[in-house]
Design a protein around this nucleic acid. Structure first.
Length: 181
DNA sequence: GTAAGGATTGGC
DNA sequence: CCAATCCTTACT
């Protein structure tokens, strides 16, 4: 089973809203070419959508700053930032230019946890602001089929208030109801 | 300039 | 349960 360039997700995919992209990323494989030239692929199993200045859980709710400006770009850019002084978070900017949205990659089949998976993928601040379409060392290939998934509140955003801390914008593959997973 | 706090994790 | 740890943001 070989991959073709047609399987690689590009601008057409990422320019949709974060909310619609997020579940479609489930089952996609994120590939990394490491410095020693080895290539490994990991299946995305959990994501979260962040979108719009009105989303109080989204960093862009504070408006455009040096940190959040990347989210105002068109889809396909990477938003990578450090949290709690030690963990890199990997986000894919979504939506059209001027609409600050992003999808956080929270889990892989091979590695659960947003901080853990960036360590596995060797992703740090050097990836912030890069565009997926320009990268030879990181790309995402589309899922082979649609997966059944669950949705629930996002993690770690209790500060965002009653409504925004409870919107079901976290999506994960339903492993108990998945044939052949 | 300074202070407060966080899209988490792992160790006690 | 709670400390680690440092960057970004918002200012007594």
């Amino acid at each position: 089973m070989s991959s073709t360039s047609n399987d690689i997700l590009g601008n057409v995919f990422f320019n949709e809203s974060a909310l619609s992209i997020a579940p479609n990323l489930l089952g996609c494989k994120i590939f990394r070419r490491y410095k020693d030239n080895t290539v490994k692929g990991f299946t995305i199993t959990e994501v979260e959508a962040y979108g719009g200045e009105e989303d109080l859980a989204c960093h862009a709710s504070k408006g455009i700053t040096e940190r959040t400006s990347i989210m105002y770009k068109s889809g396909g850019y990477l938003y990578v930032y450090l949290i709690y002084g030690m963990h890199w978070m990997l986000n894919i900017v979504s939506g059209a230019e001027g609409s600050p949205q992003a999808v956080l990659i929270r889990g892989l089949a091979e590695c659960y946890g947003p901080g853990r998976l960036t360590k596995l993928l060797a992703i740090d601040k050097s990836f912030n602001g890069r565009h997926l379409g320009e990268l030879e060392d990181l790309w995402i290939e589309k899922a082979q089929h649609n997966y059944k998934y669950n949705a629930g509140p996002r993690i770690g955003v209790n500060y965002a208030g009653e409504y925004w801390s409870n919107v079901p914008w976290r999506f994960w593959i339903d492993q108990n109801n998945q044939k052949g997973f």
